[in-house]
Every structure is written in structure tokens, then in C-alpha cells.
């Protein structure tokens, strides 16, 4: 058991039109500092729910188990406190914020996190300098900073904007929730490079994906197979290759 991210027997449910529906049925997962783990699994296995529960979305009710991060009870924290502690969720469908300027949004987020981490806030000029360097690196146009957050962005632009936020907020744990869905190969590379550029002994990532393709670019230390709200198999990067060739059947049968 590591002292970084430790999930133990985690259970969660959502209210589906008045009837509670159990989605996570006892997740055990340990991600040590500096490692990249992938979770793969069929639709409806609870992968996205896990990412939302870890980042603090209120729609889900945790009914059992625990999740500690850097020794703190992650589940007791507000989403903004989790962000300050170093958790970053890259959304599967980044949310549009009409009327909120992207540059202002990024600066507000960066300074909120810096404040919470006891660092000095960035003034407008030094922020702009930082963000310009990042957008150049991500082949993003300055135009995207002037627009409203994610409004009118293409799928690829939205994902780039997620990576930009991740780079600016410097998390120690990035959770990528099917960030590769709907991406062309170039965008996929950019997302992968974004994650790889942060890889260090102090940075871990949980990559949730349907496809093995993303894992060609972000090579994981461990791969977990998730089905029906549980982790049913864990192994090295080779697990992704087996899944790609043979599908989930053998793991599902073995778990049954």
C-alpha cells in the first residue's frame, strides 16, 4: 500500500430518477507516486464514475470504502480542495462556459490553486507569459484564449484546452477520463505528450480509456481491467495488448 493514492473497497451509487443505482461495488486500487496506471473496461463498467467520485462531483453518493491521497481523506474534501492538493480531472466532455473568457478562467484557476498552495498569485503579465509559452507548445492559437471557455471549440481544441489547464495547474495526480474519445491521431499525440511532459517521480496519472491506442503513446506502469463496478484483473502494459487482440471476454469469464 502506497502513501499516494489508495482506494479501498470504494462503493458509490447515483440517484437514477428516484431509484438508487449502485455503480462502484468495491474498488481496490493503489497508485504509487510517479506511476501511470490505466483503467480499461467495457461501457457501463463504472470507469467515469470512479473519476468523478475521486474529483468530488456531488451527484454520486459514496456508500462504502475509502480513498486517501497523500495521507488525506480525499472523499471528505471539496472539489476545489482536491484540486489544490494536486488532483486534476481531464473531462471526457469538457464543459462549455458561455460568457466566461478562457484567459480569465485560466488565470482565476491558476491563482486559486496557487493561493491554496501558499504560493504567490501571478499578475496579468507573468500569467500571460506563462500561458503563451504553453499554448505555443500545444500548437494552440491565441484566439482560443480570447474566446469563451470551450464554446465553439472543436473536439480536438477542447482536449487541448484540458491539457493546457493540466499543464498550468501542475497536478500531482491527473485523471484522464476517456480523453482520447473522438480524437484524431494528432490530437491524441498532443494529449499524450501533455501527460508525458509532466511525468516525474512526483507525478502520477490514472488514464481511463476504451482503446489501447492511447496507451501506445502514454505507456502505463500498470493496467487494470474494470467491469461491473470492480477491478477484475491487474497487470503490466501487456494487458492492454491482450485486450486489444482478444477483447474483455477472457477476463470477464475468469472473474465470473
Amino acid at each position: 500500500m502506497s502513501d499516494f493514492l489508495n482506494i479501498c473497497g470504494l462503493q458509490a451509487r447515483i440517484d437514477a430518477d428516484g431509484t438508487p443505482k449502485d455503480i462502484l461495488k468495491g474498488i481496490d486500487l493503489d497508485i504509487p507516486r510517479g506511476e501511470v496506471h490505466a483503467i480499461m473496461g467495457p461501457n457501463g463498467s463504472g470507469k467515469s464514475t470512479l473519476s468523478y467520485v475521486l474529483s468530488g462531483r456531488e451527484d454520486y453518493e459514496v456508500t462504502g470504502g475509502s480513498a486517501t491521497f497523500k495521507g488525506q481523506d480525499l472523499l471528505a474534501l471539496d472539489p476545489e480542495e482536491r484540486a489544490a492538493l494536486g488532483v486534476f480531472l481531464a473531462f471526457q466532455s469538457p464543459v462549455e462556459l458561455p460568457g466566461v473568457n478562457n484567459a480569465n478562467f485560466l488565470r482565476t484557476a491558476v491563482n486559486a490553486v496557487r493561493r491554496a498552495r501558499g504560493e504567490d498569485e501571478l499578475d496579468a503579465i507573468s500569467f500571460l507569459k506563462t500561458v503563451r509559452a504553453e499554448t505555443k507548445h500545444l500548437s494552440m492559437s491565441d484566439e482560443m484564449l480570447k474566446r469563451a471557455v470551450n464554446v465553439g471549440f472543436s473536439g480536438g481544441e477542447k482536449k487541448r484546452n484540458e491539457v493546457l489547464q493540466m499543464r498550468l495547474l501542475q497536478p500531482s495526480l491527473a485523471i484522464l477520463d476517456e480523453t482520447d474519445s473522438g480524437l484524431d491521431i494528432d490530437a491524441l499525440r498532443i494529449v499524450a505528450e501533455g501527460v508525458n511532459s509532466l511525468r516525474s517521480p512526483d507525478f502520477s496519472a490514472l488514464v481511463i480509456t476504451h482503446h489501447q491506442r492511447l496507451l501506445d503513446y502514454i505507456v502505463p506502469d500498470r493496467v487494470h481491467v474494470m467491469a461491473k463496478g470492480r477491478i477484475i484483473h491487474s497487470g503490466g502494459p501487456e494487458v492492454a495488448k491482450i485486450l486489444e487482440k482478444q477483447g474483455y471476454t477472457q477476463f470477464l469469464e475468469a472473474a465470473a
Binding site: G56, D59, E80, A83, V95, L97, G99, T108, A112
Partner: peptide
């Protein structure tokens, strides 16, 4: 709620996130 969560997941405290969305509405 989704917009509010998006802002908070980026570290923006709830009250500030609300003000941002209200200003955006206006």
C-alpha cells in the same frame, strides 16, 4: 451544476465559481 463542478475541479472556490457564472449570465 456541471459548470459549477468544472470550475471547482479547477480549484476555484465555490463562492467565486458562482460569481463567475452569474457574471457570465449577465
Amino acid at each position: 451544476d456541471e459548470q459549477l463542478f468544472y470550475l471547482r475541479s479547477r480549484g476555484v472556490p465555490e463562492a467565486e465559481a458562482r460569481d463567475i457564472l452569474v457574471t457570465a449570465f449577465l
